[in-house]
Each structure stands twice: as C-alpha cells, then as structure tokens.
Amino acid sequence: MPLGTLDRTPPPFFKQGPSALSKLMVCSALALFLMVADARFKITQPIRYVVGLVITPVQWLAYQPVQGVRLVTGYFESLGEAQRSEEQARKKLTLQSQRSNQVEQLALENARLRKLLDLRPRLTTESVPAEVLYDAADPYTRKVIIDKGLAQAIEAGSPVIDESGVIGQVTRVHPLISEVTLVTDREQAIPVLNTRTGARSVAYGDPAAHGGALELRFMAANADVKPGDVLTTSGVDGVYPPGLPVAVVERVERRADSAFARIVCKPQGLVDGARHVMVLKPVSPQIPPRPPAEEPTAAQKKGRKAAPPPPGAPQ
C-alpha cells in the first residue's frame, strides 16, 4: 500500500487542542468583558428579563409542594391553638360567671352596709372603648397610640385597662388620637394594694426586665410579700379606681447587703399585645374637695398662751 494513502492525523483520543491555561485566560477575559459591558451598558438586562419570565412559572410550580406542606402544617397548628384558646376562654368565662354572681351579692351587701353606716356611695367610673393603633416611635419608652382623643372627651391622666387588668395611663391627648404610657415604662408609677396582706405600696415600671415588668421599690427586706400575691389599684391617688388588677408578684429577692427587697411583678394586663382597651375617666373629679382650714375664733385667740421667748432674746 502506498505510503501517501495513510491517514497521518492522530486519533480523537490524542487530540489536545488549546492548552488549559489558554482556555482559562480566554474565559476570564470574556467574563471580565461581559461584567464591564453589563455594568456599563446593561447589555444582559433584556436577557435577564427573558430568563426570569421563563423561569418564574417553573419556580412557582416547584414551590407549590413546599407551600402546600406549610399550609397544612399551619392549619393544624392554628387549629390546635384555636382549640386551646377556646378551652381557656371557656374556663375564664365560667370563672367570670361565678365571680359575677358573687359580685352582685357583695355589691348589694355593700350598698346596704353603706346606707346603714351613712357612708358616701362608691365612685362610679365612665369608660370609652378604644383600639390600639401602633406603638410610639420612641424606642426608649413603652407607649402606644389609641384611636380616641379630644373629640371623644378623652382626658390626660385617664387610666387604660384591657380585659385582664391595667395597662397604662393617658399622658398626651390629641384631637383624634391619644398617647398611652404603659405601666412598664420607667416613668410610670402606680399605687397598689396587696390583696393578701392589705399593705399599700407603689409599683414602678421596669422596662429592663424581659418583656417588661413592674417593681415594688422601697419595701423592707422583711416585708410580708410572697410570689403569687395579687396587686390591685389602691385608689388613693385619685386617678385609678380601687380594685383594678395590676400585677402578680413573680420574684422576691432579699439581699443581706441591702435594707430593701427587690420585688419583681408581672403585669396582669396584656401590655405588649393589647388591641382593644377601655379608657376610664379619672376619679379625682368625683372626690369631694378638702374642706378649708377653719379660722380660730376670738375666744380661742385670747385663750392661747404666748410662747416663751427663746433663750438669750432681749426682754
């Protein structure tokens, strides 16, 4: 066979083409060119739009099983939570029904005793329903904004409660909205009464605690306070009506290096989650004014003895 007819090309296995370094340099230069061109001239923007338009249905279809699992899981979780909430609501309704029957009987007895002792009638408190719109913008305070203001006869200093207890006090009133300072704010203080012992004290806001709390300050280290004690408004400040739930004693710390105990209380009201509240009228306008001091009569002035002069004074 003539040698000129032989195929001298190497088999495909031995074909190498350009070297790997040359391919890397070409691909790097092309990538750099595309990045600069895209950043400068947006040449790949239409391609992105087209690719995004084509891939969107595929992404939506691929996400449907995950979304379905989430919906099923969320349904069963919400169902369980709704059942637990219904059970708690039923228990609370039964307890409130029992208490309401007792309250009616106690109110009747109280009215009869007050008439018997010729005491003035108990103060009545008017209320205005309101809804919490949003939290105040100041992150260093604990305040919320409600949808009632001067147009609804809201007054500064009015107590604000929810279905569980006191949550705060109106501190600023605008024509259509009002600012409520929560009981957990550091500037808020409320006179309270320990329902177990009858001792009066003042609860101060403690926003540094987890979730916000109240603290009974200036209580002696040997004070009769225990975890679980219920604190209600004492009514001595002329703002809060007496008997409103305020907090429950959560922790009592008695230290040997301090004459006062540190008493941490948990608010009864939904301070962080209240949506619908009641704004009460301050009770101070209903309290009779203090009688003026009586002037001494002439006989009393004449019968008074002159005070002796201090030692060393000229006679």
Rank of each mutant, 00 (worst) to 15 (best):
D237K: 00
G238M: 11
G238I: 11
V239P: 01
V239F: 04
P241N: 11
P241G: 06
P241C: 12
P242G: 12
P242K: 14
P242A: 15
G243C: 14
G243T: 12
L244G: 09
L244I: 15
L244R: 13
P245Q: 15
P245C: 15
P245I: 15
V246A: 15
V246D: 11
V246R: 07
A247F: 13
V248P: 03
V249K: 07
V249R: 05
V249G: 04
V249F: 08
V249L: 09
R251E: 07
V252Q: 08
V252W: 04
V252I: 09
V252E: 04
V252R: 03
E253Q: 10
R254D: 00
R254H: 04
R255K: 09
R255E: 10
A256C: 03
D257V: 02
D257R: 06
S258R: 14
S258N: 13
A259C: 08
A259T: 13
A261D: 05
R262L: 14
R262F: 08
C265S: 12
C265L: 11
K266I: 10
P267V: 08
P267F: 06
P267C: 06
Q268F: 14
Q268K: 15
G269I: 10
L270S: 12
L270D: 13
V271G: 01
D272Y: 04
D272N: 12
G273D: 10
G273W: 02
G273V: 08
A274V: 01
A274F: 03
A274E: 02
A274P: 01
H276N: 03
H276D: 05
V277N: 00
V277L: 05
M278P: 04
L280I: 05
L280R: 04
L280E: 09
L280Q: 08
L280C: 07
K281H: 09
K281F: 08
P282R: 08
V283F: 10
S284M: 12
S284K: 14
S284C: 07
P285Y: 07
P285Q: 07
P285A: 09
P285L: 13
Q286I: 09
Q286L: 14
I287G: 12
I287N: 10
P289C: 09
P289S: 13
R290N: 09
R290H: 11
R290S: 13
P291K: 13
P291F: 05
P291W: 11
P292M: 11
P292L: 13
P292Y: 08
P292D: 12
E294M: 07
E294G: 03
E294N: 02
E294A: 10
E295L: 11
E295R: 02
E295N: 03
P296E: 07
P296F: 02
P296Q: 04
A298F: 01
A298M: 01
A298C: 01
A298G: 03
A299P: 00
A299Q: 00
A299K: 00
A299H: 00
Q300P: 02
G303A: 15
G303D: 14
